[in-house]
Write a protein that binds this DNA or RNA. Structure first.
Lengths: 327, 327
DNA sequence: GTAATAGTGTCTTTCAGACAGTATGAC
DNA sequence: GTCATACTGTCTGAAAGACACTATTAC
C-alpha cells in the first residue's frame, strides 16, 4: 500500500456537469459521438500543463465547447475498479473527478461545436421531475421492479458487502415510504439503488449481476457513457441542496429577470412546484434582489425586472440556514 | 491536454481526518515523526490492491492505527502543483484525496501504535473555538494583521489571479463584518485567507510571498505536514455543516448518553454554546433519541440516558432542513 | 368586455428564542 | 440544610403556509 510507484499507471480524468436553464428546462451539456451514448465533457489532467484541477477544467471546456465557465464546484472523485467498462487490459487506471459548473445559455449558440449540445437533464432522470405531479414512470415501471428486487431475500443474503440497511429499508429511504416523504436531494442514492437492482442500462453494460437486460433497462432514463450519469446524479443532488443555502440560482439567471422567471428556474432544478406568495416573500425578506426599475413587455400584465444584489454575499453569513442561536 | 499518458507519473494519496470527541474536546488523529510537524494518517492508493478508494482508506487506517472506521465521507481532492513543498524534482505528482471519518475514542488506547495519537483539533485552529466567548487571538493577533494585509492596495492590484471580491470584502466575508456574523462553517475559507496573507506557518514553508516568517506565523495555530491542515479545515467545516441536517453526531456518541453529553458534543464541534432548553426541545421534536430507562450516577441530580433511534433515517426525509413545501 | 399574467393583504399555525422556575441526587 | 446538576412550563414574536383578492397589459 505504501510503495511509491504502483505498477498500474494512473490517469486523472475530469468530467464536468455543465448546467444551464432554458425556460423551465434544466439543460446539461453533453457530447455525442455517432452511435454512442451521450457523455459529459471530459478531459484528462496533466499536472505539468495546469497549476490546479480547476484551471485544467476551465481550459479544456473552453477548448472543447467554447464555453467560459462561471461558477465551478468540485463534486466527487470516483475510482472504482472497472468503472470504465473495460476489463483489466493494461490500460491506465482512470480516477475521475466530477465537477458541477453553472452557466447561462449563450445567445450565440453557433460558438459551440457540433459535438457538444445542451440536452434536458430529465431525459436522463425522468423520475426526478415532479412538477407535473408524481411521475407515472415511478408506479408503472420503477417501484414494482424495485419492490420485486427488495423482496428477494435469498439474493439479499448472498450479497458480499455488509450493509447497515436492508434492501427494503434502503428502498424506503431513497424513494420515500409514504406520500410526501420524497426527498428531492437524494438523486444519487436513487440512481445507485437502481444501478444495484440492475434497472439502469449502465448496470447491464458494466456486467452487474441481476441486470434485466438493455431492452428493459433503457426505459429508465437515457444512459450515458462510462459513469457519467452517476456524476450527473451527484451534480443534480448537490445543486438541489445548494439552492437552499447559497445564492447559486443567480448564476443561471440573466442580469435582470422577473420573479416568476426566478421561481420557475428554482422549480426546474428542484423538480417541484413552489408556493408563489411564499416564494416571493422569501426572496423579499432575504433581500437578495433589487428592482431594476424596468419591466417586461409580454402578453399579460408586465412584470417588474430585478437584479441580484451581490452585497448579500457579505451581509448575511449564509443565506438560508440555522441550528439555533448562541445561548 | 488529451494525450493518454502524461509524462509525470501521478500518485494518488489518501489523507483521513479522523474525528472523535472526548468530553468537550474534539480530537483528531495525527501521526508525529520526531522533529517533524503532525500529519494526518496518510497512504497512497494502488488500484490493483483495492476495489474502491474507501476500501483502501479503511484498510490503511486499520493497518496504521488499528482503528476500524465507522462513518466515512469523501471531502475533496487537492492537486495543486507544489502542494507537497518539494520543488519539481522528477518525483511523482501527488493528487491527494481528503476524507472525513468519525469514530469513538476507544477504551483500549493501547491498541494504537505510538506513532498516532488523538490531539485536540483547536490546537490547530485556536480561532475556531468560541465557547469561551470571542477568542482573544482574533483581536490581538489575527485581525490587525489581516486588516493590514487587506489595506495593501498595491499588493492587491499586483495579484495574478483575478478575484470577484476585494481583499477587504473577503476579509469581511470570512471573519464577519460586525458582531454576530461569524459563520462557524467557514473554517476552510478562513484558513485559506490566512494562508494567502502569509499568516500561517505553511505559507512561509511553501514559499508564499508575503510571508511574515515562521517565528511569527507559528502562533496562528500549530502547523501540519503538507497540506493536511487544509484538509482538516475542510473536515471541520463539513462536519459543522452536516451536524445541522444529518444525524451524524451519534457516530461520535457511545451507545447510551445523557442529553447534556449530546449537547456538549455538538457544542464542541460547532465551537459555540447552545441554548439548553431549545436544544432539548429540538432533540425531542425530531424524535431522534429515546430513553433507555436507566440513569447516570454522578454528583448532582442523575441524568436520564438515551439512545439514538435508528428509525429516523427512514421516517424523516432529511432531519433538519426546509425550502418550502409544494404548492 | 375576456384572457393572461403580475402582484398584494391578512389570517392561522408552527416554532425558535428566551424568561424563570422546579426536581433530585450527594454531602 | 447547601451545592450541583437535571429537567419543565409558558410567554413572545417571527416566520411558514395557505386563503382569496386586486392590478395591468393585449386583444
Amino acid at each position: 500500500m505504501n510503495e511509491r510507484f504502483p505498477e498500474t499507471p494512473i490517469e486523472i480524468g475530469l468530467a464536468a456537469a455543465i448546467v444551464a436553464v432554458e425556460g423551465d428546462a434544466p439543460q446539461i451539456l453533453v457530447g455525442h459521438a455517432d452511435g454512442d451514448d451521450d457523455g459529459l465533457p471530459y478531459g484528462s489532467f496533466d499536472p505539468l500543463a495546469h497549476q490546479t484541477l480547476e484551471i485544467a477544467l476551465r481550459a479544456f471546456v473552453a477548448d472543447q465547447s467554447g464555453l467560459s465557465l462561471g461558477y465551478v464546484e468540485q463534486l466527487y472523485t470516483f475510482a472504482d475498479r472497472g468503472r470504465h467498462d473495460r476489463p483489466n487490459d493494461g490500460a491506465p487506471h482512470v480516477v475521475s473527478i466530477g465537477y458541477l459548473a453553472l452557466t447561462r445559455v449563450s445567445a450565440k449558440a453557433e460558438e459551440r461545436p457540433k459535438t457538444a449540445a445542451f440536452r434536458p437533464w430529465y431525459r436522463f432522470f425522468p423520475w426526478e421531475d415532479w412538477r407535473g405531479g408524481r411521475p407515472a414512470i415511478l408506479d408503472r415501471d420503477i417501484l414494482p421492479r424495485l419492490n420485486n428486487w427488495a423482496s428477494d431475500r435469498a439474493a439479499e443474503k448472498a450479497e458480499t458487502r455488509a450493509r447497515p440497511l436492508s434492501r427494503l429499508e434502503r428502498l424506503r429511504f431513497c424513494f420515500g415510504a409514504d406520500a410526501g416523504s420524497w426527498d428531492e436531494e437524494k438523486v444519487l442514492d436513487r440512481y445507485e439503488l437502481l444501478y444495484e437492482a440492475g434497472l439502469v442500462f449502465e448496470a447491464g453494460r458494466d456486467g452487474r449481476i441481476g441486470s434485466t437486460g438493455p431492452e428493459t433497462a433503457r426505459r429508465f432514463g437515457e444512459p450515458m457513457r462510462h459513469d457519467h450519469r452517476r456524476i450527473l446524479a451527484t451534480a443534480m443532488g448537490r445543486l438541489r441542496a445548494k439552492l437552499k443555502y447559497r445564492p447559486v440560482v443567480f448564476e443561471l439567471m440573466p442580469a435582470s429577470f422577473t420573479l416568476t422567471a426566478l421561481q420557475s428556474t428554482v422549480e426546474a432544478i428542484s423538480g417541484r412546484h413552489l408556493h408563489k406568495q411564499n416564494f416571493r416573500r422569501l426572496v423579499e425578506t432575504t433581500a437578495m434582489v433589487e428592482p431594476t426599475g424596468s419591466q417586461t413587455t409580454t402578453k399579460g400584465r408586465p412584470a417588474a425586472l430585478f437584479r441580484f444584489r451581490r452585497d448579500v454575499l457579505q451581509e448575511r453569513p449564509a443565506p438560508g440556514l440555522r441550528l439555533g442561536k448562541r445561548g
